[in-house]
Design a protein around this nucleic acid. Structure first.
Lengths: 344, 344
DNA sequence: GTGAAAGCGCTAACAA
DNA sequence: TTGTTAGCGCTTTCAC
């Protein structure tokens, strides 16, 4: 049950290992007949070149590492799928790692993946500092950063325009006449979350209002986190008639919390999410949300990484994807400020 | 920017590569002082052993490949997360690959992963034949199969008792007095799907009924697939008052289709899903479903694989997880507070 | 067009 | 306790 090596093929075909190598990699001079013959032996012996050995000498493994906070979040799952599909098409394999937004874990994992010889890395590195990721990129191979911006020659940038997307959502809520607009936030050190929050505050301010601190409720970016945050929010601030969620998962949790609190959506409280995961459209009520194509984000990240690996040292411009508000049932009702508050 | 090698460390510490190796792997005899000194150099140079090179000689890479139909399905995402968490704790990294239930793709990917030197493989290999997987296992290293059963010395088995779970669901529907019980099925060659279908037919038969062919509607195991299948079903068979879905995704689609068709759930049509993804409990109405812990499935699969890698040649008994019916709003027979929440 | 030699970075086996 | 030698399976370089 020992694996077949190039040596075995060489012997069986009566040629040198070199010739076998030339045959399977179709490079270098080799006569058609020899190639045919070698390939036939390869076939019959079921020879598959050892990628580790190839990697040792070529310094290329055709593997890529991707780090996400949590593959269980549909947004990341779609992203990984996008990256995976592109990778597979180009003969690459993906190492997946979950960091739970812990920068130490992320850094450790990325670093391990480098030891495994990955040709490149895709990461969001949420909660980590620019300095950390920059220092990391100083020493290691191509990295594509998703949804954050760090200037560095080895770092490719693929981002969704989260700020503009969030502005659209809050702008809409203001225009609909809501005065008590809450936000469900996932507090992370620096990035996506702060951009959403920034957009929220900026937009309110532009309309002559200030964000009431009590209306910003924090929680984990999960169904449960959104559910609980909304419960706290509705209890503490019954005046709230609109909720802008950090992501769709939290917003779906919010929908349920509203229902359990006896607040009809959208009549008594409207909800807008962020991401537009496939479930958003299937919910009842269907969830209005800021569409942000995570599958495409993953695809683009992988494509950019491929470009970077192809041309080491080249400089690539950032890729930015637009986000846009999608209105569905969770915001359908045109509601005014005199709507009654729940009294439970 | 060349990577630091063991040679660099050896030179800097004034010892041989061997000694460095002994220091970092804490095996073999080495004096405490030497070790300290070497480790200090390792630290200061930022040396990280090349896993490929280690793998070449030890024939162990500390990587594992996992194949799923589609990481975008929360059931699989949870499973992968379970496997990942266990893997990480044991210093292993995970290759992820999606097969879309295509056995040729799955086989190709698994085979590629073997070329990458993975120490083991976790797969569902849906739609593939026992012979294919068995033939594959003949040549390659430990494999753990999830949710299917193939007798083979190299194959570890981790399954959920899908049949019993499905029986519980259908049994419940029959007991509730439903006479027109439909099933949303995902037609795949051999496995999980047939077990659900088998359970459905057996249970009806046990109660003196036969499964009406028109009541078995097929579709993709996705939200959209479930939505469309249910639309077709309700149009063709308006007499149906209960739907047993292949998985939660299809069932969530069914919920929405019922609503769009003006069929109140559970009053006019009840729905039971399969899997119990986190969303099931958060839906409105919350989805009754057969709980099948995919996270644990993934954990157990990884643990079993670890066992098998530890003890090559040993024989391990299959691991079976129970499934059990969880009743929620989508099958609730008495509605107390429901009406209060319904849209005006 | 083909083969022989060298070596990628590491560890196993043995020698000192 | 430490160093030396050999080699994992492959590709690169350079003979022929």
């Amino acid at each position: 049950m020992r694996r077949v090596t190039i040596e075995d093929v060489a012997r069986a075909a009566g040629v040198s290992r070199q010739t076998v190598s030339r045959a399977i990699n179709q490079k270098g001079d080799i006569s058609p007949e020899t190639r045919e013959r070698v390939l036939a032996v390869v076939q019959s012996l079921g020879f598959r070149p050892n990628r580790l050995a190839q990697g040792m000498v070529t310094q290329r493994t055709h593997t890529v590492g991707i780090e996400v906070a949590d593959i269980t979040n549909p947004f990341f799952a779609e992203m990984v799928r996008g990256a995976q599909d592109v990778a597979a098409k180009h003969g690459y394999h993906l190492f997946l790692t979950n960091s739970d937004d812990n920068p130490a874990v992320a850094l450790q994992s990325l670093s391990n993946l480098v030891s495994h010889g990955v040709d490149g890395l895709i990461t969001m590195f949420a909660n980590g500092t620019d300095e950390e990721i920059s220092a990391f990129a100083d020493q290691y191979r191509p990295i594509v950063l998703i949804n954050r911006t760090v200037e560095h020659p080895h770092i490719g940038l693929v981002t969704a325009d989260i700020y503009q997307g969030a502005v659209q959502a809050v702008e809409y809520l203001v225009r609909q006449g809501h005065t008590a607009i809450a936000m469900l936030n996932h507090p992370s050190l620096l990035h996506g979350s702060s951009r959403r929050l920034q957009a929220y505050c900026d937009t309110l301010q532009r309309h002559g209002r200030t964000a009431h601190p009590d209306w910003i409720e924090e929680g984990e970016p999960t169904l449960q986190g959104g559910y609980e945050a909304t419960q706290r929010l509705l209890t503490a601030c019954p005046e709230v008639t609109a909720i802008f969620g950090y992501n769709d998962l939290m917003s779906l949790g919010a929908l349920r919390a509203c229902r359990d609190a006896g607040r009809a959506v959208p009549q008594e409280c409207v909800v807008i999410g962020f991401d537009d995961i496939p479930l958003a459209a299937m919910m009842t009520p269907s969830l209005s949300t800021v569409h942000c194509d995570s599958y495409v984000l993953g695809q683009q990240a992988m494509l950019r990484l491929l470009d970077m690996m192809e041309a080491p040292g080249a400089v690539f411009s950032p890729i930015e994807l637009a986000c846009n508000l999608i209105l569905r049932e969770s915001t359908k009702s045109h509601h005014t400020s005199e709507s009654r508050y729940s009294t439970h």
